[in-house]
Every structure is written in structure tokens, then in C-alpha cells.
Amino acid sequence: MDPLADLLQRAQQGDAAARERLFAVAYDELRGQARAQLRNSGGRNTLLDTTVLVHESFLRFVQAGQLQGSDRGHFFSYAGRVMRSVIVDFARKRQAERRGGDAEHVPLDTQFAEDVRATDEELIRINDALEALQTVDDRLVKVVEMRFFAGMTEAEVAEALGVADRTVRRDWEKAKLLLTATLR
């Protein structure tokens, strides 16, 4: 059995030592995910850096009282969702602080692709679009979270979702089209 999966199972059963060890074992990979997330947010998040994002996500895991996922792929998919939530919350906070001030107005770039660099406003709009998409097709949202926010490869997403790589490619293309249309 994968050591991470074993630690995850023990942590889900309430073993605090296993939870701490789980994050120690997964820390480097979580940092990689956090770097990808921050890169996709355009690096404009001066309040967040890789370490802060990983630690803030860890705090949310602990506060939630339960970890989700049954294996490595599911765990990192869940971590991607939590990181997305942290980034969007920070973006909302920054936007609220800027409202009414001398905020620089940046036009919204609605091109949704792998190399997108999102502003705070765009991150919030993408999050809102994902929430709307979730009512239509939950798997598409998971694919976007894992590919865009968690920086996972098609093969990693396919493994986590238990589908073929080709299905992930089709879902990714479909999600990009739907999100682009929603963001316009």
C-alpha cells in the first residue's frame, strides 16, 4: 500500500500523528501544487506565497476536521480544491480592500487556457463560473480544478478520476469552452 494512502486512511480515522506525518510526507508535492496555483493566479497575490498557501491550506484541512480522498490522486485533487478556495478568498479580500480606492482597473481577459494569468477579479469570476458549471457537470469542474488549479497532468487527473486520458482531454476542452462562454 502507498505510504501516503495509509497515512491518509489513518488521518481520516482521527489519528492526529498520522495527519501531521501525512503533510510532512506530502509537503514537497503540495508546494509544487501551490507554485502552480500561484503561477496561474498571475503572481499578483502579494499576500500569498507558496509556503503561506500550503500552510493556509493545511489549516483549512485541520479546521474542516476531515481529510477527503482514498488515495494519492484523490488527496491531491482535494488539496487543489482547498488551495483554490484559499486563493479565491484572498482575492476577494484584496478586492474588498481596493473597492472605492485608487485601484488600477485592468480589463478582463476572457481567454481561458493553460497559460492564463488571472487577476483577482478574474479568479473570482472563474470561481463563480466553476460553481455554475458544477450544477451541470461535476466531473468537468474536477478536471478544471486538477488541471488548472492543481497543475496535474492529464494522466494524473485520469488516474484520480478513474477515467481514460482521452476522457480527461475531452472534458478539459469542453470545460474551457463552457467557461469561456460563461466568462464572456
Rank of each mutant, 00 (worst) to 15 (best):
L161A: 03
L30K: 05
V88D: 01
L59I: 04
R139Y: 13
M146C: 04
V141T: 08
F76M: 05
D165Y: 07
A113N: 13
H55V: 04
I126H: 06
A96L: 11
H105Y: 14
S41L: 12
A24D: 12
G151W: 08
T50P: 02
A91R: 02
E159F: 05
N45W: 11
V25R: 12
E114R: 15
L59N: 08
V25E: 13
A160W: 06
E156P: 02
V116C: 14
R81G: 09
G100D: 09
E104K: 15
L59E: 07
E97G: 07
L140I: 01
G73E: 01
A103I: 11
F76N: 03
G162T: 07
F90H: 12
R31W: 09
T119F: 00
F112W: 13
R44Q: 14
R125T: 02
A113I: 13
S70C: 10
S70R: 12
E121A: 08
A160G: 01
A79Y: 01
A132H: 09
L67E: 11
I126F: 00
D138A: 15
R21M: 09
L53P: 01
E131V: 09
R31K: 14
R84L: 00
V141Y: 01
D89M: 00
Q33F: 11
S70W: 10
L22D: 02
E159M: 04
F75P: 05
R117I: 06
E121Y: 02
F58M: 05
F90Y: 13
A64Q: 09
T50F: 09
R31F: 07
R166V: 10
M146H: 09
G101H: 10
V82A: 07
R60G: 03
F61H: 04
N40S: 02
L130K: 06
G100F: 10
V136I: 05
E154L: 05
D120S: 02
Q68M: 07
N127D: 11
D89Y: 08
G151S: 02
A91D: 09
R44I: 13
H74Q: 15
A155V: 08
T46V: 13
L22H: 01
Q63S: 10
L130D: 03
L161R: 03
S41W: 10
K93R: 14
V144H: 02
V163S: 01
R92P: 06
A91M: 07
V54R: 00
Y78H: 10
V88N: 02
H55A: 10
A64H: 06
P107M: 11
V54D: 03
